[in-house]
Design a protein around this nucleic acid. Structure first.
Lengths: 387, 387
DNA sequence: TTCGTTTGTTAACTTAACTTACTAACTTCT
DNA sequence: AGAAGTTAGTAAGTTAAGTTAACAAACGAA
């Protein structure tokens, strides 16, 4: 029974049990046996092993049922069995954190990205992690692995960043670089995918099978979770909503906001909104300021921002038409102006898409990137433990 | 070892072996053992069972390898172990066929849809199948099951057609109706999903992990295969490309071609193309005729058809931006004018989408619907056999 | 205190892998 | 032609990981 193809049967069952305990705390051996349709002895041996290894903790006995009988032993998942490192590399700052297996942040720190280049960056990351480990007295053997997010198209498997304009990287072997400083398994993906994973694991997308995370900032990008799995596409470029065209006539003459920018981000991205209004008003306006003016009913702002929001709305409606997701989560810098964006976008979705779809603003804070990176690690890592 | 959760381990391995034999004919016990990393004895016992049951046939011995040694016994999959019924219900005609497990059509016949309504339709289908079974001398016990395609939004699980305008159905329990006449497992899905499954199984999409099948006819619809699995969305309405908006300004004023029609099918669907040109020329023109005039360089046709094709191109480019598929297959009535459509569409995709994507015309014939329906049956059926 | 109930364990059995050791069949080298 | 070397497939025995059946432990209530 050693092998049914790379994965032993026992391991499967152990994983199922551990997963069940996680999702149904507190639980008992008998309950597990019933729910997973395994026999009681099987569950007992598996639980014994998991308790031995420290994945599961027996906590006092629970309540016996109405009709009497022996009280069950409560079983709880032990989220401190191991710790995870999450790294969120952004254009301006780098965030590093250590979480437990539940995604609870135990320690977190950031440093400016620009000060360091190439190898010095990774030494700095390692240094931060070492400090945090010391602080929390977590030994290397307790570390499960490293997950990292990068703002650019990334090949999960080779770990090479095809292109990350914000960092000036091209064909950059980030996984290798991280692996050089960390003696743990390393997983890398792009920042929007990480955002989607984070929302699915710990954010508003918990228990949703199909969701889209859209980050509207300088550019517009999105991560797609279908059937509970991140969908990356054939060339790791699924979710490039920034390239969506929402106006045939306009598309013929549009100018990319930056080289390599797509249509949508050129008409609805943060930079474009700012510059468009700046041109109209004759002074430099930031995107936030533009929204502020829009809220105040400034006519120029209404004139310039209105269409930008409509384009975004159409792009999202198109997403709904194609993928029929359960939930769309908006994140990124512009999600601060969700109060302005939401009515326009959801009106357009209702008007044009065949099905409705809830659209919400992300509830995660600054640490979302780090937690998403940890979600990536736990999803991809082929260990006993799995989200 | 009875249960690791609904599915025994043995069954998994049997299925893997059978699948391997199918895809790698002819093969041998030793090769299977190597490729699936199972031991030789294990493979021998599994193969013995499969031969006993008739799934696998031993054909003469093969060639021994370069360095000598005993000649292996060649193993072949037996596609005649069972037969499948495929039903393709269209607005104008109904097609029924019987195929073997490879999807080879053994018998096929059609009849007009309108002549029959409600229960009479299903009696007719059953009658046709009975005739074909007799002709081929296939007993009920050899029938694997029934797959069926319907032109409308269909809930795979309950088997209820939400709405099929072409047939005048609403909340129609088609699975139940078919189950009433057939004593075999029945699976139903909508026609574009079936088209996608057919292309993936026997068409141009073989061995592709991610593909889109787009049917351009009266309306525009699509089926999505991601990671080798049909993606249906949260409300069974994924792939509704007909609702995609490709022009913000135009969308504000467009009139649906029919009630419930989306933007894209209203500007690029077959009916709209015909009527648009009819209006311009002052006489009734069919879509085919419109393409004919376009090929001949007729200025009115260029003026009306050009934008329609561009809208379709943008919709497909948006698809590529979002899903990054490996292949897009065009089908439906208008794919006859692929020579006209392809240059426009692929030019637009190259211009606006972040990655390239091959776009081809379906190579399947009239029987595609029946074969796709069989593909659905084999995908969904939880038997030993699986595509 | 005793009885019914529920939890969890122990013991014996079953299944389906595995390993090791074989036979069978074939090629090639001498 | 016969020996040596190679590869295919089988037989016998072992091991892992389940199963069922029976029982001990713990508890509530009559």
């Amino acid at each position: 029974m050693q092998n049914f193809n790379e994965e032993t049967n026992k391991n499967r069952n152990s994983r199922q049990v551990l997963q069940y305990v996680q999702n149904s705390e507190p639980t008992t051996r008998t309950e597990i046996a019933r729910k997973l349709s395994l026999s009681k002895p099987t569950v007992s041996t598996i639980v014994a092993e998991l308790v031995e290894e420290g994945w599961i903790i027996e906590t006092g006995s629970g309540e016996s049922s109405a009709s009497g009988g022996r009280k069950p032993v409560n079983l709880m998942f032990n989220p401190k069995k191991a710790y995870c490192i999450g790294v969120d590399i952004g254009g301006t700052k780098v965030a590093v954190g250590i979480t437990d297996l539940r995604g609870k942040l135990e320690s977190y720190r950031t440093f400016p990205a620009q000060e360091h280049q190439d190898d010095s960056l990774f030494k700095m990351i390692k240094h931060m992690v070492d400090e945090m480990q010391e602080e929390l007295s977590i030994s290397d053997s307790q570390i499960f692995g490293v997950g990292a997010g990068v703002p650019g198209v990334t090949d999960m498997e080779t770990g090479i960043v095809e292109e990350a304009p914000a960092l000036g990287w091209k064909e950059f072997p980030i996984k290798e670089k991280l692996q050089n400083v960390f003696p743990f398994p390393v997983y890398v993906d792009n920042d929007v995918n990480i955002g989607a994973l984070g929302e699915h694991w710990r954010g508003l997308g918990r228990n949703k099978r199909n969701l889209i995370f859209i980050a509207v900032g300088t550019g517009v990008g999105s991560g797609i979770i279908l059937n509970g799995q991140l969908f990356r596409g054939s060339h790791y470029s699924a979710g490039e909503i920034g390239y969506m065209v929402t106006d045939r006539s306009l598309a013929k003459s549009y100018e990319p906001a930056y080289a390599g920018y797509g249509f949508l981000e050129s008409v609805s991205g943060g930079t474009s909104i700012g510059t468009a209004l700046s041109g109209r008003l004759g002074r430099r306006v930031s995107a936030e300021e533009a929204f502020e003016l829009y809220r105040a009913g400034n006519p120029e702002a209404l004139e310039k921002l209105g269409p930008a929001l409509e384009h975004l709305g159409i792009a999202i409606a198109n997403y709904v038409s194609i993928l029929d997701p359960e939930l769309i989560i908006l994140g990124g810098g512009l999600s601060q102006s969700f109060d302005v964006i939401h009515p326009v976008v959801s009106g357009i979705v209702r008007q044009y898409a065949p099905k409705e779809c809830e659209i919400v603003k992300t509830a995660s804070g600054k640490e979302a990137g780090v937690i998403g990176a940890v979600a990536l690690l736990l999803k991809e890592h082929e260990g006993l433990y799995n989200i």
